[in-house]
Design a protein around this nucleic acid. Sequence first.
DNA 1: CAGATACTTGACTAATTTAGTCAGGTTTAT
DNA 2: ATAAACCTGACTAAATTAGTCAAGTATCTG
Lengths: 141, 141
Amino acid sequence: MKLTSKGRYAVMALVDLAKFNDINPVSLRDISLRQGISLDYLEQIFSKLRKKAIVQSVRGNQGGYVLNKKANEIKLTNIFDAVDEKVKTVRCKKESKKGCNGKPTKCLTHNLWDELENHINDFFEKKSLEDLIKDNIERRI
Amino acid sequence: MKLTSKGRYAVMALVDLAKFNDINPVSLRDISLRQGISLDYLEQIFSKLRKKAIVQSVRGNQGGYVLNKKANEIKLTNIFDAVDEKVKTVRCKKESKKGCNGKPTKCLTHNLWDELENHINDFFEKKSLEDLIKDNIERRI
DNA sequence: CAGATACTTGACTAATTTAGTCAGGTTTAT
DNA sequence: ATAAACCTGACTAAATTAGTCAAGTATCTG
């Protein structure tokens, strides 16, 4: 049960973006340097974030990225969803007619994994980018 | 963020075991047939469960496995721990002197991942095998 | 004691996923 | 014009997963 670095990076980069977002857009190059994430990889990640309208891009010289919503409107769920970081506790959901384990019934623990999934998603649903930034400032004091 | 099938199988197999555990020990072969898990794979899993004293083995003809503790004393944590299903939200913990991302400071989101880890582990800590079995019986009625 | 049943161990492997890199663009401010 | 920065898609090495396979050892039952 582990988080992929794509998901982690997406969140890190957005916190960085929100933090340094003043008048000018923030360039991926700067984020790359500050957070130690490869520029190429960041581009992949931001392409997805843009498609899901979480950020907006500003092209050309002195361009970069800007948040497309207020920080308190961006939940972790939205971020993870954008970069395809999904919470998959079970395999056995898609086989339409069969249950899990190839049998007509649901597996003994099917309900458990659903609960777990909800439990984790709750966490993601409650945390917004703003929370993270606040947390970050407090910590520094 | 996903659960491996080793962890899932371990829990499924133990619920099955607890359910059919009357006078005789339960053979892996039976579990394999009922739950649709390969016998060889089950053997690997039960070897680990035995080492962590979650089950006891009974050798010989009509042998099999028995729970080594009461069902309400076996938490999901114990099971996952036994089969090395760990909750790893972050990579950046072991590099003793450095923080995450190779810098001397912690990454912007370090605290978040810790929280997430605790949130998930809470869930595992609270659920016991007994809960699962009860849940299973209720559901059938 | 013979044989079957069932546990035990360890090595091996195919497939998948992850975590990127690389190359070759396009757009736009100055 | 040109440089900074975005944009896209293909590619790949390494790690992990999800098992399989083979060769045992222990012990109950007849």
